[in-house]
Amino acid sequence: MNEYTFPILYGVIAGVVTRLYLLRTDYRQYPTYLHGRTIHLALGAIAAGLGTVAVPAIMEKEFAAITFLALAASQFRDVRNMERNTLNELDQYELVPRGKTYIEGIAIVFEGRNYLVIFVSFLSTLAYLVWNIGAALAASLIGLVVARRFMSGSRLKDIADVQYVKPHFEGAGLYVDNIYIMNIGLPARREEILRYGMGFVLTPKNFNARTTIANLGQRQAILHDVSTALGIYRDSGTPALVPLAKRDLNDGRVGVFILPQVEDVEKAKAVIENVPVLESAIRMPAKQRWKRRGGGGDDA
């Protein structure tokens, strides 16, 4: 026991609590099971430890110890690789795959959250040592709020309007509104599709959103999320029953065709609206500098 015992203990606990808080299992079902969670909690605890001991190390003028922090932090890059590999492997056996963009997004988040944990632990311990436990509590709380802000990106409803449209056939062509989805040859399949299929039209709210929802990875993420949440009328060997999202080239609207097992339009709409906007899909053409100089170019 020395003067640093309680601050360190506090910092580690604050970090682990942050990680727990950020590690929610939601309808996207990841990470679902105890083992996946254990991995992330363990890594979170290590991250918390690193962030915490940095403070006493600085106070004791052990600057060499700080360099180890950088070294250890680079280990967290492996977290990203680990997540990416696992999800890529699993993706091959999904009826509706997540897609590489979604997987990359998840992997980035897992890495990023460990750094947030380091940050929270560091602040908490610093506040404890400089002031007292009250300040430490406040610091952890602020850290948690900041982490939470970083954690939640925007949702699809922030960038696009979602509207239900019943899919229909023109000859063999399947359409959602006036957006062509695919060609279905067999009348039996067409009947199934009309029976179970649902169509949604995503209308982008501005020019940036138009490019973002055009991203193939973002569209795959929408299809995956809906299929996870509402089930999917599909099996291997029925390739014609595939949910698809196609784009109207004229105005950038995206037609989403899905085959949910739960036939509830409102639920499906809610799920689509809450699909995360993938970091790697975000484009901001309207933020270009020459456009802003030109004036009136920024319609975001």
Binding site: A172, M182, N183, I184, G185, S236, G237, T238, P239, A240
Partner: peptide, 11 residues
Amino acid sequence: LEAILDGIAHE
């Protein structure tokens, strides 16, 4: 054929 070949029948 659709089921056997895992392909889609298009008209």
